[in-house]
């Protein structure tokens, strides 16, 4: 599926740069060692803000939940309707979620709970974007 391109900004530059190197990194708080995604300007749990960094994670996870999109607001994705849109929870921290179109999985035939691993796909402007594929447990 041809996703829109990405124009990295200051906050998310490390995430997108790592994706172009086919690495998955997640923002974390140096003070409380807690991952947070989506990234933010400050730690959500530290009252004084907390110093932030980026941590490479394993790229393994599980399919937590999914829906089937039939009426998508994004023009570039509309020709692929209907499509799966799943939420992945990372093995490194199951509280952290990422989206996936689950390439190769038939529409509305999603194995909730299945193991997945990250892959990287080019978006419309060539920026690599994390995606997920089902793997054997």
């Amino acid at each position: 599926m041809a996703k829109q391109g990405v124009e990295p900004d200051e906050l998310t530059q490390p995430f997108w740069d790592a994706a172009n190197e086919q690495r998955l990194v997640i923002q974390y708080c140096v003070d409380c060692d807690r991952l947070q995604h989506p990234p933010s300007d400050s730690c959500r749990d530290c009252d004084d803000g907390g110093e932030l960094g980026w941590k490479q994670v394993s790229g393994r996870g599980r399919i937590y939940n999914y829906g089937v999109v039939h009426d998508c607001p994004i023009r570039l994705l509309q020709e692929d309707q209907p499509f799966n849109l799943a939420v992945i929870m990372l093995d490194d921290d199951p509280g952290i979620q990422m989206y996936s179109h689950l390439p190769g999985i038939p529409v509305d035939d999603v194995p909730v709970g299945a193991a997945v691993e990250v892959i990287f796909e080019p978006s419309a402007n060539g920026q690599l974007v994390p995606e997920w594929r089902v793997i054997a447990d």
């Binding site: 124009e7 990295p8 995430f15 997108w16 989506p38 998508c72 994705l77 989206y99 419309a124």
Partner: peptide, 18 residues
């Protein structure tokens, strides 16, 4: 309707959930 998104909203919007 565009061809690209800024990096921060892209993390949540790129996959097209209504």
């Amino acid at each position: 309707a565009g061809n690209a998104l800024p990096g921060t909203p892209a993390i949540t919007q790129l996959w097209g959930g209504p």
